[in-house]
Design a protein around this nucleic acid. Structure first.
Lengths: 210, 210
DNA sequence: TTTTTTCTCGCATAAATATGCGATTTGTCC
DNA sequence: GGACAAATCGCATATTTATGCGAGAAAAAA
């Protein structure tokens, strides 16, 4: 028997889902509340459900904050977001916070049931549009490397020194060269990268633009 | 009519899928080859398919290398990986290279068809186990934030200015404050972060350690 | 072999940064 | 009302950076 909890402030939707899930043989949905705070109260007193369906827009604490807190206290509870938001930020914030699935609210009741089944079998329920956004997140936008920014090995050494937060003097020590040589390299690096400060070199480097 | 191409070196599997897809009313699968190189030859001469099903382990160029090349030349072709590999590296390499879906080879023929439909409708077909791995990738292992490095809003503004490569003067201009105030904030930031140069602040920030 | 890179070093100087000490104002918390 | 954090500003100074110009030696490319 899969124990399911619901956090959803729209009472109609909440009751609808609860009733539907209760009708399933292998599912039970006893806890259905309208805020994260209430759910936390419940969790303290009674046994934890296996799966939580959670909205994002909620009175009080948002669903995304809720994920973090619940996951920290009860890491075994699997959380599926069920929301109208399909903007990338909310999706990624939810997944980063520890959600295991992300459904849009137009998902039908049988599909919700299917998703819960999928989840307990080790899958990750996602609406197709959501999956698309998640995947797009991986695509490298453009390896926008500056073509004529090919640094020599020594120059890369120097850049690494800068990224490590070293001063010219310390870089000189590290590679056993004079500080004026460091200056010379840095001059050339700036030319190649079209910048004129350490700050920009470090930023470019850590952004993978070198 | 959806035009589909297959790159798969196991001739049995290839023929099976091709025949099945050809049987579908709204699908056509004329091009079925056993290497990326062959597919590239085909693409040069005839019209591009809408969707490619591609294996990873192939004679000659690997499927993952293939994605990059094909996507660069023909960015409109959607690629679904169809492979036995379910290790995270291969999955992420594929998605980063530009694949729009990732199925495991035990996927049934009707499911493959469904996946293609899903793809052209803007979704992203993935086996549930794959989706799970993708999602796990988002979970932050540990936000190793320095506990007593909580910067105030203004201090965060200043840090952003530094990351953008601005000088004190320009930061002062951006927020319409005096350069001495910028100095004051930076002093406090350095104290909180236990550093003593712009470089280190930028590095920390871009590494997500603030 | 000649030319071009790459790496090395030096001197000089204007600009920017790091850091010391001190001060006023505006909130918020108790 | 008093304590305290946050944001603002000023002045002074030692250190570091940024950038100009020049140059020699070794290695790689032509």
């Amino acid at each position: 028997m899969i124990e399911i909890g619901i956090v959803e402030d729209n009472i109609k939707i909440r009751n609808l889902i609860q009733k539907y899930l209760e009708m399933q043989d292998e599912m039970s949905c006893k806890i259905a509340v309208d805020s994260v705070e209430e759910m936390l109260d419940h969790l303290k007193e009674s046994a934890s459900p296996d799966v939580l369906l959670m909205d994002i827009q909620l009175p009080g604490m948002s669903g995304i904050e809720g994920i973090s807190i619940i996951k920290k206290e009860y890491p075994d509870i699997e959380i599926i977001m069920l929301t109208i938001y399909h903007d990338s930020h909310k999706i990624f914030d939810s997944l980063c916070a520890g959600a295991s699935g992300y459904l849009l609210k137009h998902t039908s009741l049988p599909e919700i049931k299917e998703s819960i089944d999928l989840l307990v079998r080790g899958g990750a329920p996602m609406s197709p549009q959501i999956a698309r956004k998640v995947i797009q997140h991986f695509k490298q936008p453009e390896p926008k490397k500056n073509p004529d920014s090919n640094l020599t090995l020594r120059e890369q050494d120097i850049v690494n020194g800068l990224v490590d937060g070293l001063s010219y003097k310390l870089i000189a020590d590290r590679f056993d060269i004079s500080i004026d040589t460091v200056r010379a390299h840095i001059r050339n690096i700036y030319k190649k990268l079209h910048v004129n400060s350490k700050a920009e070199v470090i930023a470019k480097s850590l952004r993978g633009e070198i």
